[in-house]
Each structure stands twice: as C-alpha cells, then as structure tokens.
C-alpha cells in the first residue's frame, strides 16, 4: 500500500515535468529577489548605508515581506490550479480513475506534488535571495553582505512559519480545482478571496480569514495584538484539516468520475 502510494506519487511528479506549474515555481521564486536586487543596484548610494548594520536580516525580511503579501498566496492559487488542471486539460482523469488506485492514493499523491512544488518555491526563493544579495555585493563592494554571516536560523524559522501560513489556502484551492473543470473558476475564486482579504485587513478577527495568514506576519498592527498570530495558526490548521476532509469526501463520493 505504502510502496504503491510512493510509486504513484512518483508518477504524479513525472506528470508535472515541463508543465506551467513547474516553470512558475522557478520563475515565481526568482521574481521578487531579482527585482529587489535591481533596486539595490540602481540606488547603491541610498541602500549601502541602510543595509550596513544587519544586511542579511534586512534583505531576507524585505524580500519575504514583498513576496508574502500578494505573491505567495497568488502563487499557491496558481500552482494548485495548474497541477490539477494537467488532468483536465489532457482529458486523463478517466484513465486515472480506471487504474487500480485507491481514492486516497489519487487524492493525496497529487496533493503531495503541490506541496513539494510549494516547498521547492520556498527553498528557491531563499537561494535567490542569497544569490542576488551576493551578486549585488560583487558589483558594489560598499555592501557588507560578505562581512556578515547568513542568519540560517532566522531564515529557516521564517520559511517554516510562512509555509504553514499557506496550508489552509492549499486545501481550499485544491478542493476548488478538483471540483471545477474550468481552470478560471478556482483561480477566480482564489483571487477574489485574496483581494477581499486586503479589503478587510483591518478587521480584528482577521485570524479567521485563511487568505491573509501569510500577510499578517508583515502587517504591523497584528503582531502587537496578544494571541493574534497564535489564533491565526490555530484557525489555519482547522481550515486545512476540515477542508481537506471535505474535499476528499467530495471526490470519493462523486457520482461521475473522469
């Protein structure tokens, strides 16, 4: 059973080869660090003094702040839809369901691929931050990135925190992507819910709202409210588990498959 799940997950990885989801992961991860480094290259006179004291912490924070407010949830919405869309676009759901696989296997193996792509995007994002900062320092010797050690602990903790912040969105978007054949519908709903999040971002109960969990770490008022971040993490977990169970039940009990 486990061996079969591993092999089927491997097959799901093979399906994502050369797809838009694969390229989006690479390009999406590079976008913010590259744009940020261009900023540093364009105005060294302004940024060298700013980045003098604790350059790594500042550049990591700058990049992740820019990335996680809009880009990260947007990437999750897109990549989830694209991975599921591979089956709809190629008319292959029927072949998947007609193969000797359990419903749990079909449901989870693809979800594992989505999460692996998201984790890869996180890792690549960090690699691009380090690489672009190093490149900037090579061009302008005035920057002090090479004089300071990389704060691996901070980088790891922030990455982990942000990865957990998108769990709820992955479950909701996965359900929507499985539910609707038309790629525009889950994407449209996801973007609409994300925009709604920005419209209600001053709401004191924002911790209930799954599409804003990655943003709240960088929205100053929320860090000051005691227990807010913790509440958000609890609700994130609840959303993730409940929606994932509903999505599985919905898929497994569907009258028409493929």
């Amino acid at each position: 059973m486990v061996a079969s799940f591993i092999l089927n997950t491997k097959a799901e990885f093979l399906k994502s080869k050369r797809t838009a989801a694969f390229w989006l992961t690479i390009v999406g991860a590079a976008f913010v660090p590259v744009v940020n480094s261009l900023r540093l290259l364009a105005r060294p006179d302004h940024f060298i003094p700013v980045f003098e004291k604790d350059p790594w912490k500042l550049i990591i924070n700058d990049n992740w702040e820019a990335g996680s407010l809009f880009m990260l949830p947007m990437y999750v919405i897109l990549v989830t839809s694209l991975v599921v869309q591979t089956e709809y676009k190629n008319n292959t759901w029927k072949q998947v369901y007609a193969s000797p696989r359990t419903m749990a296997d079909i449901f989870l193996s693809r979800f594992v691929v989505i999460h692996t792509l998201i984790l890869s995007a996180f890792m690549l994002f960090n690699v691009f931050i380090l690489f672009t900062a190093g490149t900037v320092n090579l061009v302008y010797k005035g920057y002090t990135f090479f004089d300071h050690p990389v704060p691996w602990g901070t980088l790891f903790a922030l990455t982990l925190k942000l990865y957990f912040s998108v769990l709820a969105i992955t479950a909701i978007q996965y359900w929507l992507s499985l539910r609707f054949k038309n790629f525009i519908i889950p994407m449209g709903i996801g973007i609409a819910l994300l925009i709604t999040g920005f419209m209600i971002h001053q709401w004191d109960k924002l911790y209930c709202y799954p599409y804003m969990y990655s943003a709240i770490f960088f929205l100053p008022p929320f860090e000051k409210i005691p227990g807010f971040i913790r509440n958000a993490q609890v609700f994130d977990t609840i959303w993730f588990v409940v929606i994932l169970l509903i999505a599985f039940w919905d898929m497994a009990t569907r009258k028409e498959k493929g």
Binding site: A11, L14, K15, R18, T86, N90, T92, K94, P100
Partner: peptide, 20 residues
C-alpha cells in the same frame, strides 16, 4: 487519455509506475 506535454515513453512510464 494522454499527457500531451510528455513523450510517448514518459506517458507509458507514468502508468508503468501505477501498474508496477
């Protein structure tokens, strides 16, 4: 039902993994 972005052999490999 075929994955158009994959080669013929890759398509077979996808299902070979499933059927072991």
């Amino acid at each position: 039902s075929l994955y158009l972005h994959l080669t013929g052999k890759e398509n077979l490999e996808v299902f070979r993994l499933t059927y072991q």
